[in-house]
C-alpha cells in the first residue's frame, strides 16, 4: 500500500483533506476574484455608454435609488448631481449595490466590471453635473517624493487622521458607523472619496483641498503602506493597546516560564536512579558532599 492510503484512516486525515480543500479554494479565489481595476478618466461619454448604464442602473440600482435616480425616501439617496466619480468609487469598491440594511455600506468585492461601472457612471453624470472621474495624473502620487509625502502627512493629520487614524488603519464613528482602513484602497478610489464624500465622509472639494494636496495625501498613504517598520514587528500599528496586550500575554508568559525554570526541582534524580546509585556504589545518596 502506498504511504498516503496507508494513512487514510489516520485521525488527522480529515484535517489534512480539509486544509488542502481550503487552500485550493483560497488560491482560486485570489487568482480569479476580480481586483480593483482602474478606470480611464473620461468626462465625455458616448450615447451607447449612457444607454447601457441606464439599463444596468435600472436592473441593479433603481430599487433603492428609484427609476430615474431621484432616490427613495428611507432607502437610497438621490443620485442627481453626485457625478461619475461617486459612482466609480461606490461601485468600484463594491459598496454599491448595498446588500443589507446597516449603519454603513461596507466595501466588498465589486459586482460589476470596470466597463459596466464606466457605463453606469456615464448614465449618472447625464442626470446632473457632478465631479467627474479624475484623470490618472491627479492621483499618480510618488511615495518616494519626500516633499510630497511630508506635505501629505501634515494634511492627512489635519484633515483625515481624526477618522481614519494616523496610519490609515481606520476608526470608529457613532452608532456602529466607521471610517474604513485605507491600507488597501487604490489611489483612484482615495481621490474619488476625498472629492465626493461618500456616505458620512465629508466632501473635500478642490477649493478647501487642492488637487495637489490630494495627491500629496495619497503619496503619504502609499508611503505608510510600503514604508519600513524599522523597529520590528508592528503589532497591527494600533499603538499602545496592542503593545500592552503583547506585554501582558507573551512577555509575562515568557518571564514566568523563566521564573518557574529557576525554581523548579526538575534536576532531582528519580527514585529508580537513586536506588541504582546506592546499589552499585554502596554509598548513601542523601549524603551530600
Amino acid at each position: 500500500m502506498n504511504t498516503l492510503s496507508a494513512r487514510r484512516r489516520h485521525p488527522l486525515a480529515a484535517f489534512v483533506v480539509l486544509f488542502f480543500a481550503l487552500a485550493m479554494i483560497g488560491a482560486a479565489y485570489a487568482t480569479l476574484g476580480s481586483s480593483t481595476a482602474s478606470a480611464a478618466g473620461s468626462s465625455t461619454y458616448t450615447a451607447d455608454q449612457i444607454a447601457n448604464g441606464q439599463k444596468l442602473f435600472q436592473s441593479s440600482c433603481s430599487s433603492c435609488h428609484n427609476m430615474n435616480g431621484q432616490g427613495v425616501q428611507g432607502s437610497g439617496p438621490s443620485l442627481i448631481g453626485v457625478g461619475a466619480a461617486a459612482v466609480d468609487f461606490q461601485v468600484g469598491t463594491g459598496r454599491m449595490p448595498a446588500q443589507q440594511i446597516g449603519p454603513q455600506a461596507p466595501s466588498k468585492p465589486p459586482v460589476f466590471t470596470q466597463d459596466e461601472i464606466d457605463d453606469m457612471a456615464a448614465y449618472i453624470s447625464s442626470l446632473g453635473a457632478g465631479p467627474a472621474v479624475p484623470d490618472p495624473a491627479l492621483y499618480a502620487a510618488d511615495p518616494n517624493n519626500a516633499a510630497s509625502v511630508s506635505n501629505g502627512g501634515v494634511l492627512f493629520r489635519s484633515n483625515c487622521s481624526q477618522c481614519h487614524n494616523v496610519a490609515g488603519a481606520g476608526g470608529a464613528l457613532t452608532d456602529g458607523k466607521f471610517a474604513p482602513s485605507l491600507k488597501q484602497t487604490s489611489p483612484q478610489h482615495i481621490y474619488e472619496a476625498m472629492l465626493t464624500g461618500p456616505q458620512n465622509m465629508p466632501i473635500f472639494n478642490d477649493n478647501v483641498m487642492s488637487p495637489q494636496d490630494k495627491k500629496d495625501i495619497i503619496a503619504y498613504l502609499l508611503q505608510t503602506r510600503t514604508g519600513p517598520n524599522p523597529g520590528g514587528l508592528d503589532l497591527g500599528s494600533i499603538g499602545p493597546v496592542s503593545e500592552g496586550l503583547f506585554v501582558w500575554t507573551i512577555v509575562l508568559g515568557l518571564l514566568i516560564v523563566f521564573a518557574c525554570w529557576i525554581g523548579a526541582h526538575t534536576t532531582k534524580a528519580s527514585r529508580a536512579r537513586v536506588a541504582h546509585f546506592e546499589a552499585t556504589t554502596g554509598k548513601d545518596a542523601t549524603d551530600n558532599d
Binding site: K268, A269, V274, T286, N288
Partner: peptide
C-alpha cells in the same frame, strides 16, 4: 524531608 540528590550529584 530528607535531601534528594540530583542526577549531577550522583553521576
Amino acid at each position: 524531608p530528607a535531601y534528594r540528590p540530583r542526577v549531577t550529584d550522583l553521576d
